[in-house]
Structure formats: structure tokens, C-alpha cells
Computed example of a mutant assay.
Amino acid sequence: MKTNNIARIQICPFCGNSYRGVPATSRKDGKTPICPDCGTREALESIGVSKEEQDSIIQTIHQCEQRGL
């Protein structure tokens, strides 16, 4: 029987937060599964986006997810 990653609660090794869904792969080592927020942060950081702007972008993503967009 296949397990469904989307239903499982996982803990991100970077931030320690729990999350559901498909994990991102860390850019730091190319293999560690991390939460989508940390994956987004790593991607934004790699193009020079400030921590404050990262927070704003992630907040917007969460608001869109809550609205079902």
C-alpha cells in the first residue's frame, strides 16, 4: 500500500515547524527534505531578497493558501 506524503505531518529540520504536503529539497545539500517555507526562503535568499521581504512574501503565500487561491 502506498503512503500519501500529503496527509503526513512532518517536522522541518531547519525551522522545527510542522508541515503537511510535499517537502522542498534544501539547496544547501541537495538532499534534505525541508518545509515549503524554508525552501521558499532558500530560493529567495539565493537571489538576494532581504529577510523582511521574504517574511512578506511567505505571509502572502499563506494568505492565498487560506483563501484557496
Rank of each mutant, 00 (worst) to 15 (best):
65 E>K: 10
8 R>W: 01
48 G>W: 05
49 V>H: 05
61 I>V: 14
42 E>N: 02
43 A>L: 07
19 Y>H: 02
10 Q>P: 01
21 G>R: 07
64 C>N: 10
6 I>H: 11
19 Y>M: 00
38 C>S: 06
47 I>Q: 15
38 C>N: 07
18 S>A: 11
62 H>L: 02
8 R>V: 04
27 R>L: 15
43 A>Q: 09
9 I>N: 09
28 K>N: 15
33 P>A: 12
1 M>N: 08
44 L>N: 10
68 G>L: 09
51 K>G: 01
2 K>A: 13
44 L>G: 04
10 Q>R: 15
2 K>M: 06
32 T>E: 01
42 E>V: 00
12 C>K: 01
29 D>L: 06
55 D>P: 02
69 L>P: 01
17 N>M: 08
13 P>C: 04
11 I>D: 12
41 R>K: 14
28 K>R: 14
39 G>I: 03
15 C>S: 12
59 Q>L: 04
15 C>N: 08
1 M>E: 12
17 N>P: 00
56 S>Q: 15
61 I>C: 09
32 T>R: 01
40 T>M: 13
33 P>W: 08
6 I>T: 08
61 I>H: 06
30 G>P: 07
67 R>T: 03
22 V>D: 06
17 N>K: 14
34 I>A: 04
65 E>W: 07
63 Q>A: 13
61 I>F: 12
58 I>G: 05
39 G>W: 03
29 D>K: 08
14 F>M: 07
19 Y>I: 00
3 T>Y: 12
56 S>R: 15
16 G>M: 07
13 P>R: 06
60 T>I: 07
6 I>Y: 12
27 R>D: 10
17 N>W: 05
53 E>R: 13
46 S>E: 12
48 G>K: 03
29 D>Y: 12
46 S>H: 09
43 A>P: 00
22 V>C: 04
9 I>M: 10
11 I>A: 09
35 C>F: 04
22 V>F: 08
52 E>M: 01
41 R>W: 02
58 I>V: 15
21 G>A: 08
9 I>E: 14
12 C>I: 00
24 A>N: 12
37 D>L: 05
22 V>R: 12
62 H>M: 01
57 I>M: 05
44 L>Q: 15
10 Q>G: 00
31 K>R: 14
5 N>Q: 05
18 S>P: 00
48 G>D: 07
2 K>N: 14
66 Q>E: 13
33 P>V: 05
23 P>A: 07
22 V>G: 01
58 I>K: 09
46 S>T: 08
61 I>D: 06
30 G>C: 11
1 M>W: 05
11 I>V: 15
51 K>E: 14
27 R>C: 02
4 N>G: 00
66 Q>G: 06
